[in-house]
Design a protein around this nucleic acid. Structure first.
Lengths: 190, 190
DNA sequence: TAAGTTAGATTTAGATCTAAATTGAGGTCT
DNA sequence: AGACCTCAATTTAGATCTAAATCTAACTTA
């Protein structure tokens, strides 16, 4: 249950949407503040919030949550034998190792995955999709992705592509700056 | 403590970054799946995660969390008398009314805001920034916004502006589709 | 005015996450 | 061999959020 908002137009120049109003308000209240990032960062933040909230609602009807779908999708996408180590899962999911342990434990409790020590000399743990887990992904992934396409359909294909291109550049920069390399999708992350 | 990731190149065509690999993996595993949204949605999701994680780290050093800064910033930005109703706060923060109650209760415990019933016939509650809350915002907002500018500085000014423009369009569409109107910033939301 | 309704804020229950502490298998050094 | 060390996974502690239940003041209506 998320809130919505209304914003009265604000400062001097053209205030074209509520995010512009935020920048305008800062300029008015603290003229020395640099608001150059707001138009990009706040909109990314809000879009992610909306996408995430919407996905939660879509998935609630299917009886699964985003974190679990993220886990199952990562395994499904990896192809047969649908098995990854917990480390590989953590790398792709952008969450801590502790969160992965908990996600796997939950999914295991629901019989969506199994967990076993890797053969050989490693301490790794292998997580494998069960038939039930596989079925659940097949039933839900397309729902989630079609809903996303619906949410994007106000953009022309050209706009969508230039947006994707700019985001790719930015994400690459940011990951480099954070000394990270992140990924995942359908799980937002799927 | 978030995880990073590495991705081996994948499918047939040009796989240019880890997000492309996700789309390529879906095309390989489920050719009927529509992956058109992934290049936009997943990148937005990951960027929001990185921005959020980074902000958390920046703010931890200053002894404040993103949710509290979001609250204080919204009040600060609104200008004198730095007072808003809880409803106004919820509208701008994109979180539930319950979350706002809890945020305000925490901030009140730390003497960063005060809370009192609105005069007149309404049931509204007025939340007002204290001097300590005002000081804390002044000390931290610029830190947060400069850090964001740093994270964006791989883009040229033109790229940043077209990105902001495309995001504005998309956010407008999405809010309309969700029958919402959302906002906030410096709080990611600030 | 009394009963019932509405609307906004708060509280509660339950889930999830991060960061830190712990565990335990393997490997190393002497 | 025995004592350490290292690394990955797990567990724990604590924080926060959503959704739903509750509370209560302000209205409505007969």
């Amino acid at each position: 249950m998320e809130m919505s908002q209304q914003q009265a137009p604000e400062g001097a120049e053209s205030v074209r949407d509520p995010v512009d109003s935020i920048a305008a308000a800062w300029r008015r209240e603290r003229p020395q503040t640099s608001v150059a990032s707001i138009g990009v960062v706040t909109r990314i933040w809000q879009l992610a919030k909306h996408f995430g909230d919407d996905r939660r609602r879509v998935l609630a009807e299917a009886g699964i949550d985003s974190a679990t779908l993220d886990l199952l999708s990562t395994l499904r996408r990896s192809g047969p034998p649908y098995t990854l180590t917990t480390r590989e899962l953590a790398e792709q999911s952008l969450v801590t190792a502790g969160a992965i342990s908990q996600r796997v434990a939950r999914a295991e409790r629901e019989r969506l995955v199994t967990r076993r020590p890797a053969p050989g000399r490693s301490r790794a743990v292998l997580v494998e999709l069960t038939a039930a887990g596989h079925d659940l992904v097949e039933r839900t992934v397309d729902q989630v992705l079609s809903r996303e396409i619906e949410l994007l359909d106000g953009l022309t294909a050209e706009q969508r592509d230039s947006l994707a291109e700019l985001l790719r550049t930015l994400l690459g920069d940011v990951q480099e700056k954070l000394n990270l390399q992140g990924v995942s999708h359908v799980g937002h992350g799927a």
